[in-house]
Structures are given as C-alpha cells and as structure tokens.
Design a protein around this nucleic acid. Structure first.
Lengths: 108, 108
DNA sequence: CTTGGTGTTCGACATGTGTCTATGTTGACA
DNA sequence: TGTCAACATAGACACATGTCGAACACCAAG
C-alpha cells in the first residue's frame, strides 16, 4: 500500500502549531497540571496561590489556554472557575499522527 | 485507587514546554511532515525547494528541531541530511499523561 | 447606592522569535 | 591549491510574548 498523502495544508499546520504553542510555556503546563491534579474546577485565586507569578499573569495564561479550549471557564458570581478540558488528551496524538503519518505500529 | 501524584517538578514543566515549543511553529511542522512523508533523510536544499522561506531560515528551524532530537542530522560530504526521529511519536503522549494524569481509559 | 472582593484589561517593558541578507566554513574536485 | 556548492552562522529588524503594576468592570452584600 501507499505510504502517506504527501501534504498537510497550511491551515492544518497553523492549527497544530497553535495547539503546541498553548503548551509551550512552563507556567501554562503547571496551571494545566494543577487543574488536572485537583480534578475539579479552580478559581483564579486558588491557582495564583500555587504558582509564583502575579495574578494578572495567571489570568492571561488561563485565557491563552481557554482560547484553544484546553480549559473551560465557568463564571460563578464574582468568581471564575476554570476546568481542564480532557479532550486535549486526544488532540496531540491526533496532530502527531497527521504530521508524522500513522503507518507506525502504535496508531489507533 | 489514588488519583495522581499532585505535582510535576519545575524541571519537568520546562522540559515538556521545550518539546511543545519545538512544534509551535507552522514552518517547523511542515518541515517535519515533509521528512515524514518522504520517509527518508532529506538535504537542506531539498527542503528549501518545498517551503516558501529562505535557506538560512530552514537551516535555523532544522537546528531547533534537532536541539530536541525530533530530527537527526547526518553529514554526508558537503551536504547534511536530516531524518525524522520517530521517537517523538512517543514523547507527546508521555508528556500529556504526566501533565493530566493517566487515570483516563485511554492510557497505555 | 456604596463598598469590597474577584477577575479582566491596559500600558509598559524586557526578552524571545522568525525572517532576511550577508558572510563564514567546509568538503569535493579540478 | 583554488574554486564551487551546500550549509551554517552572524547581524539586523519587526513582531510576538511573558511579566508586572495599575486601572477598570462586575457581582454581592450591607
């Protein structure tokens, strides 16, 4: 059988790059990990207490993660809880398969 | 059973971030895809022909990918062939599991 | 309606990044 | 040895990004 369709589109490349870029910062990785480890939606204030950076910066990073839907905000009165969106477990294997091809034994 | 060990280290966060950052650019994704699609080591010149950017920029991106060992350079006379290192298929699932935890059904 | 707490947005700043052109460097070969 | 081809590196530039402090917006009680 043939090997791969030779090209991904520019749009695909941009989309995949955006996904990877969302996790290209250690602070964002830590925030995502905190949300996953606690396994519950957390307020901005709670996250700020667990990370050595300012509150406005945390808010900014959460927005970055929310822009690609890796976290989902839910407003609750004056507070905002962020929950990790577990579908981001699947987008990276998907992207890697699209980039590298799925002929390897370990796909699916 | 218990849920997760609550924290990843700063070093882990930095390492994972570096992996994701390597693929945070559309051009690098396209280069990696070209190498995977051709399924053979390719010279810098070949890659330059297939991508709308200058030679020095391609060289720079290849270095970035090589720094995290997603591609492997092999010198051949005056030329340099780059080959995709398929182990990068595995580092992303590994990183995602470490960040989000492996309790989901689809691990392993 | 005023006050206070919780997030968001703004402005600023230093640093990082992608790109280009120009210059080195290094083998191959006449 | 000199020249050419193929990459790599350096310098420069515009633009993006991470961070901070300050100002703003909004909801909830009094």
């Amino acid at each position: 059988m043939k090997k791969t369709q030779p090209s991904i589109t520019e749009d695909q490349a941009r989309t995949y790059a955006a996904w990877f870029k969302a996790l290209s910062d250690p602070t964002r990785i830590r925030l995502l990990h905190l949300l996953a480890a606690e396994a519950r939606p957390m307020s901005v204030g709670e996250l700020v207490e667990r990370v050595p950076i300012g509150q406005s910066t945390v808010s900014h990073h959460l927005r970055t993660l929310a822009d690609v839907r890796f976290v989902l905000p839910e407003k609750q009165g004056t507070s905002t809880r962020y929950a990790v969106n577990r579908t981001c477990l699947t987008v990276f294997p998907e992207a890697v398969r699209a980039i590298l091809g799925e002929e390897d034994g370990r796909a699916r």
